[in-house]
């Protein structure tokens, strides 16, 4: 039993049961073929395409009344779109929500994987704008589908290699392509490449692209390798600073401009992670020492 009730004007978790069944069938095939994009008949949601309609449909298809939902955008629980999506599910599914990563059974995210490791019993739902990793090399779906079928990923390696030849480094900083279980090249959604190593996880990872009508998945403990070359190994990078609020030296940081004289500070993008550290007494360069 949960304390909250969903708005009786809507079906539980908004979607009708037939739509949920269609999405659920796609999710199961996605888990059975890790990294392969399953087409699904994405519905028009009461929020714009490009704002998480794929993730929202996946979350709606997975939620049970006993779930505790966390929604983040850019790592933060309080960004406006995260607030808006959380509110949508509070109203239509009546589920409890939380900001604490460890307490959440379902986490919907845009652009980040939480810093705290996820584990069994947790589901991470990604909002995906362009699910096709080959799209910017070959815009035609008819062509990229053939390339996946034939495991023809030479073009992707050529692109990464040309990057190195021109710039001395691979110029992809986010949505960095990965190969899943040695078969499908997959777009991990626009997470910074810093997050790529966390794609190997004990949690179930589900990816929803509403406008592009695709669902894909990574089961727990699945091999996920970021594409690279022996002489140019993949490097998960971040700003070379510590968090100015909690002092963490290993978390992904947002850069904040603090004045018009070039002043800036760096803070954890994962707001729950940062707040928890501060509560434990960790301090950064710009922490208010008297904060009680």
């Amino acid at each position: 039993m949960t304390a909250m009730q969903h708005d009786p004007a809507y079906n539980f978790a908004y979607l009708d049961e037939q739509t949920k069944r269609m999405i659920r069938r796609a999710l199961l095939k996605a888990l059975a073929i890790p990294g392969y994009q399953v087409p699904f008949a994405s519905r028009e949601m009461p929020m714009p395409y490009g704002w998480g309609t794929g993730g929202v449909q996946v979350t709606a298809a997975c939620l049970t009344p006993g779930d505790r939902l966390k929604v983040i955008d850019q790592g933060a629980d309080d960004t406006t779109n995260a607030v808006s999506i959380r509110k949508f599910f509070e109203r239509t599914a009546g589920v409890e929500t939380t900001e604490h990563t460890a307490e959440a059974s379902v986490i919907q995210t845009r652009h980040r994987i939480p810093e705290a490791p996820l584990g069994e019993g947790q589901i991470l739902v990604y909002q995906v704008p362009i699910p096709e990793p080959l799209r910017f090399l070959e815009p035609r779906e008819t062509e990229s589908r053939k390339m996946h079928a034939l495991e023809e990923y030479g073009l992707m390696y050529v692109k990464l290699y040309e990057d190195i030849a021109h710039n001395g480094a691979i110029s992809t900083a986010y949505a960095y392509p990965v190969k899943v279980e040695g078969r499908y090249v997959m777009d991990p959604s626009p997470i910074p490449k810093f997050d790529n190593p966390k794609l190997e996880s004990g949690a179930i990872q589900l990816f929803g692209a509403g406008r592009e009508q695709r669902i894909y998945a990574i089961p727990p403990y699945t091999q996920v390798v970021s594409l690279d070359f022996e002489d140019h190994p993949f490097e998960p990078s971040k700003a070379d600073h510590d968090c100015d609020l909690c002092g963490c030296g290993t978390s992904y940081l947002d850069e904040v401009i603090t004045d018009d004289a070039g002043g800036r500070m760096f803070v954890c993008s994962d707001t729950d992670f940062c707040a928890a550290r501060q509560a434990e007494g960790h301090r950064g360069r710009l922490s208010a020492e008297d904060a009680a």
């Binding site: 539980f12 949920k20 009344p65 589901i123 089961p219 727990p220």
Partner: peptide, 19 residues
């Protein structure tokens, strides 16, 4: 209560297929 019972059943089916 199809919406709720199906949701619980699907979660079991999802976790079964994932693990």
């Amino acid at each position: 209560d199809a919406p709720v019972e199906a949701a619980r059943a699907f979660r079991a089916a999802l976790e079964a297929m994932a693990c």
